[in-house]
Computed example of a mutant assay.
Amino acid sequence: MTTNTVVTLHGTRVLRCAPDGPPLDGESAALDLIGDAYGQDAQLVEVPVARIAEDFFRLRSGVAGAVVQKFANYRVRLAVVGDMAAHIDASDALRDFVREADQGDQLWFLTDSDALAERLAR
């Protein structure tokens, strides 16, 4: 298993999660990542799409809301990075959720790590 790493992008410490770690599938997994971020003094957690549980993309499940709320409560930002086109194309509600999230500063859905660096440069 590859380990998570910490990088600094435009003055922001980012916990970059390995693609083969445990899935982000609820509050407990969110708290684990938040704890890792606190331990590494990171302000943002970058999670690859491969680590996002399928239920996260089904908004009715409540997983996305619970995860995002935990990150917001602990004031740690979350970036989901990778190709989410199939999920977004399959759900108007998810498409709207992603669009709204990307307008804010707490949660972003981005295509890759370079897009995250560009977003942080703004």
Rank of each mutant, 00 (worst) to 15 (best):
G104L: 01
I52M: 04
R16T: 01
S28Q: 13
A115Q: 04
A29P: 08
T111Y: 04
P48M: 04
A79N: 09
T3K: 03
D102S: 09
R58W: 15
D102K: 08
V49F: 07
R122F: 06
Q43Y: 11
R95K: 10
I52F: 07
D20H: 03
M84H: 06
A121E: 06
W108Q: 11
A30K: 08
P23E: 05
T111L: 09
D25P: 12
A30Q: 03
G26D: 10
R122I: 09
V80R: 06
V81T: 13
S61C: 00
Q40N: 15
D92L: 15
P19L: 14
L9M: 15
G11T: 14
D55G: 14
V6I: 04
Q106N: 09
F56R: 03
Q43R: 12
A53R: 09
G11W: 13
D105W: 13
H10D: 00
L116G: 07
A53Q: 10
R99K: 13
D96T: 14
D41T: 05
G11C: 10
V68M: 12
R122W: 02
R75C: 06
E118N: 11
R77W: 09
R58G: 00
A72L: 14
A42R: 00
D83W: 02
T2K: 07
R16P: 05
D83Q: 15
A86D: 11
Q106K: 15
T2G: 01
R16C: 01
L116S: 05
F109C: 15
T8A: 10
Q103S: 13
Q69Y: 04
Q103D: 04
A101L: 10
Q40P: 08
R51N: 10
T2L: 09
A50H: 08
D32V: 15
M84S: 13
A30P: 10
L44S: 01
I34L: 12
R60S: 15
Q106G: 12
D102H: 04
D92R: 13
R122Y: 00
A101Y: 11
V68A: 10
A117S: 06
Y74N: 00
I88W: 02
A101P: 10
G65D: 00
P19A: 06
A53Y: 01
